[in-house]
C-alpha cells in the first residue's frame, strides 16, 4: 500500500512538516519495502490563498494512496480525503522514516475528524 507523508524535504530523513496542504513536499512511500516512490513538489499549493488542503488531498488521492501521515488536517482536506478513502494519521512528528516505522508497528491512531481549523 502507498503511504503519503508531509515533509519539509525530499528525502525519507527530512523532518515531517506538520501542515498538510502547505507542506513543501509530500512523500509517497511503498509501505511493503519502505521505498520512496515520489517526492511531490507542493510549492504551488503551499502558496495558495485558499483551498491548499483540497488540492493536496487530490494529489494524494490521484496517486491511490491508502494512508496519509501528517501533523494537522483541516475540515476541507479531511472531507476530501475521506471521500477518496484515504485514512489520516495526524499528530505525526520526527522524520518520514519514524512515521513509517510507527505505521508498521500499528501505532498510528487514525483520525475520525479534522484536527485543525479551516484557514481563511
Amino acid at each position: 500500500m502507498k503511504i503519503a507523508v508531509t515533509s519539509t524535504g525530499k528525502t525519507l530523513e527530512s523532518a515531517i512538516d506538520p501542515r498538510f496542504g502547505r507542506a513543501p513536499y509530500i512523500l509517497i512511500i511503498e509501505s511493503e519495502d519502505g521505498e520512496l516512490l515520489e517526492a511531490i513538489d507542493n510549492a504551488a499549493n503551499s502558496g495558495a490563498f485558499r483551498g491548499a488542503g483540497i488540492q493536496a488531498a487530490k494529489a494524494v488521492a490521484d496517486r491511490k494512496v491508502g494512508v496519509l501521515l501528517t501533523g494537522h488536517c483541516g475540515p476541507n482536506a479531511f472531507s476530501a480525503l475521506e471521500a477518496a478513502g484515504v485514512k489520516v494519521g495526524t499528530e505525526q512528528k520526527g522524520t518520514a522514516l519514524d512515521a513509517i516505522e510507527r505505521f508498521k508497528k500499528n501505532e498510528i491512531v487514525f483520525a475520525a475528524k479534522p484536527n485543525a481549523e479551516a484557514h481563511w
Binding site: A48, R50, G51, A57, A61, N76, A80, A83, A84, G85
Partner: peptide, 18 residues
C-alpha cells in the same frame, strides 16, 4: 481557481464557501 469543486477518487466534491 479556488478548489471549490474537485474530482477526488470516484466523486466530485463541492465546497460552496470557497
Amino acid at each position: 481557481q479556488f478548489s471549490a469543486i474537485v474530482l477526488i477518487g470516484q466523486t466530485v466534491l463541492t465546497f460552496p464557501e470557497l
